[in-house]
Amino acid sequence: MKYWLTCQNALMATLAYRGNLVLNLLTTAVNVMVTIFMWLAVYNFSGRSDIAGIQPNQMVIYLIVVNVLALIFSAEPIFKFSGLVRSGNLSVVLMRPINYFIQSFWDYLGRGLPFLVIYGLATGFISPVFRRGLLYGLGSLLLMMLTYGMFFLMITAISLCSFWLVQVWPLRPVLSALFLLLGGQAFPLQVLPPAFAWLIYNPFSLAGNQLTLLLLGKLSLNQILLAGGWALGWAVVALGILKIVWPRGIRSYEGVGS
């Protein structure tokens, strides 16, 4: 229950800065429009009605959904944690009768809730995911939750570098670039030559590319299982890093801030 309050606060924080939220959405909308028009021109001039199994109208939905996912899978916990370490306020958090990581998860959930609702509504109304039988629906839901948890763990594991780095701002453009290129935000990874097929199972692609294809109903049950397996694998890796690095980080943490 105490964590639920964190989630509510995070949601209120997102909604309180309406100007920022609207501008963020506007910028995303402009970027999506640019990419949509470019892809429609590619379909038009290539004379193809299908690129890597994706039709033009599906490409429009793909680009919108993958950009909503880019908003859901933010890297914000890194910068929040870095702020706590740099200011020395992590000490206060550690003394509270809470688990910082669980609190951070609920905070992450609260901040992304408006976008999660959009993704959820799109899955419920546009997507065929829940009309393909109980097993497929449950598998899809599980994959979504697993991927969400995996990405949060991965971002949290990355955030631990704040114990040793004074400035972590360079990670912001790097992670944006990775999501753009490896997450399928710039283009679906399926359009790349077969030699790059292995890229599909990187954590960014699982979060962006694969969850969007799932919504479009492009993943078979086997592919869902495979993506789920990879997500679980990455989650275990991130957890392993957390387990190893956290105690070392805490030892090097001075607790006075800079």
Partner: peptide, 12 residues
């Protein structure tokens, strides 16, 4: 990204 676009069509 430009390379990907033009891998499907020579001109736009």
């Amino acid at each position: 990204t430009g390379g990907v676009y033009f891998s499907f069509t020579p001109t736009i």
